[in-house]
Nucleic acid binder design. Structure first.
Lengths: 335, 335
DNA sequence: AAATATATGGCAACGATTTACGAAGTTTCA
DNA sequence: TGAAACTTCGTAAATCGTTGCCATATATTT
């Protein structure tokens, strides 16, 4: 691979000049600029990003850390971030944490070691203290779907508690009062906040939280089917089910169908996240919208504004969930 | 951030020695090793991967390029690659090409510039010549789902033609002969090969390919609904539909339901890829399995073997699709 | 005492950026 | 016309944080 030195030799100019045309941060006559460009062309020269990064201490790339590479939720999130950054000529380096403390740390440190100009992370297993400590380093860390008080300027989050509240409230408003709940892993803040919202909606309507109508799943399809299996086994005494995400809802729906529970006449279901396929299930899934793609874009905009100093960018750190009514809830109001 | 220099000073040893304990590639006495480790600890030292990469010309990371970050297909693929590589202590740098030539080139060159030890790419818009040219450079490029003759050693592909053949044949074996087809974008090799297989199955059974039963979609849900809309408009004269991927199948299923076409009694549908949610649709979708996760793992294994010189790895470059029978096909055999 | 190991230090790469300084060449204007 | 003021560019060295090769000093073996 050609180096800047060879380019300068071929173009008959100095190293400094080549560097000048590359970063065009100083005046260079059109003539020599053309010569240099031509030399780069014929040599197939491409700057060595590693060397640039080391010398200039800026990599023009931002690191992303998510828990999983697959899954509609993370896909939407990554896609939102990448779209916005790419449009600004920045690149993205993605790695994963698998919701395990060691791997999240490893991923974060990998990104820092790669000299990313900023990091956008969706971490779940690592402690607040660790993050705060890490963000004292030179690499700014932005947090998705997580609120850390000391870093609140850099946190983008959905009001999950409110989302959980809305989901259950929506069921209650349709006349339901026997409501089961399949939660996500409780070490995940998203999951536990949604559950809190559920409990608040319940108590606001004087409905007691019933442990027998409660199951903790894995946020995947299997969690939904296992959950419904467990709940039905307890004696079938509920008319509605809230699932803490859409994947589990789809698992529960499949299980219901296979066990002759009619949807939604015998069981109303509401999901969470509004991933694309929620609209393609049968019945189409009522769910609470999690604008994760927008949130990803916003995170990207924040780094564009604060790290790359772009102007005229409006920032919004808290996003509000909304209920998307479709066909998986049956109204049983008696009025 | 502390540098190796500060560590060496604190530990009272030379730069070289610190480097040696980091890479433990040379003998260092236990005593000095302990001193160095202690110094690293108290300074909170972490190696600068960029500098390492520049000096050693090896980054311990492999680049991945996919078309989109969202979508079950790419998610599965990335996940497969990452899992295998991570287990071997290697990191992954992911970027996207958006199925556009310029962006694919940009992404590929970004990865090369970042000094990846190898690249695993799923590119669709870039020409074979370009890839061949690029792979003459120092960075080996492995290709997913694409066969380039000159690089066949580095190509991992599914026999898409055979998959397309199997899908249609499966329908025919269930007694169907009026078979519509919603294809993917034909510039994508996957899509055009699947279509070829479809045509072969048709002709093998003496069924003429009918242009009015053909539509080209976008590989997304909307492509499926638009496709079925278009096909039904032509006058409804088919009993079965093959969709070139599962997303389009789910779009078509939704459209069918909304327009009172009973599934599968009035219309049998088969998809392609066997993404997770295919099993959660209603009716559950019969589809042809695309072991894209396995293929991702295999790509990772190839670089582990060839680039990182791991032993005892079995390589398999061609994967075979298989039909997964579920409930979206109705048999109308008259025998 | 010579030969071999073992443990370390010294220093030039790696491929850029950055800075300071100065030498031409070009334009401006009293 | 001639001096001042700009432009444009070259030279050279320092820097970024490592690695890798060669040399060297000490310890061990024969």
């Amino acid at each position: 691979m050609a180096t800047i030195y060879e380019v300068s030799k071929l173009a008959g100019v100095s190293l400094a000049t080549v560097s000048r045309v590359m970063n065009n941060n100083a005046r260079v006559s059109d003539n020599t600029k053309k010569k240099v460009l031509a030399a780069m062309q014929t040599l197939g020269y491409r700057p060595n990003a590693i060397a640039q990064s080391l010398a200039s201490n800026c990599s023009n790339s931002v690191g992303i850390l998510v828990s999983e590479l697959s899954g509609a939720f993370y896909g939407q999130m990554m896609s939102g971030i990448e779209t916005e950054l790419r449009a600004a000529g920045k690149h993205v380096i993605i790695t994963t944490g698998h919701s395990e403390e060691e791997k999240e740390k490893d991923g974060l440190e990998f990104l820092i070691g790669r000299n990313c100009d900023a990091i956008i992370a969706h971490v779940e297993a690592v402690s607040d203290e660790y993050i705060v400590e890490l963000s004292k380093g030179k690499t700014p860390i932005y947090l998705m779907s997580r609120h850390v008080e000391a870093l609140s300027e850099k946190c983008i989050s959905l009001d999950n508690e409110h989302g959980g509240y809305l989901a259950t409230k929506s069921l209650i408003e349709h006349g339901h009062s026997k409501i089961a709940y399949i939660a996500g892993p409780q070490f995940k803040a998203d999951a536990s906040n949604r559950l809190q919202g559920h409990k608040r909606a319940l108590s606001e309507h004087n409905i007691a939280f019933d442990e027998t109508l409660f199951f903790i799943g894995d946020f995947k399809e299997t969690g939904g089917s296992e959950g419904l299996h467990h709940l039905l086994k307890q004696g079938y005494d509920f008319t509605a089910l809230v699932c803490a995400n859409d994947e589990m809802a789809s698992g529960a729906m499949k299980y219901a169908r296979e066990h002759n529970v009619k949807l939604p006449s015998q069981l109303s279901i509401i999901g969470f996240d509004n991933v694309i396929f929620a609209n393609y299930l049968y019945p189409t899934l009522t769910t609470v919208d999690n604008p994760v793609n927008e949130m990803g874009r916003m995170a990207a905009k924040m780094v564009l504004k604060e790290i790359y100093h772009q102007k005229n960018i409006e920032i919004n750190r808290i996003f509000e969930p909304t209920v998307i009514l479709r066909n998986s809830i049956k109204s049983i109001k008696t009025t």
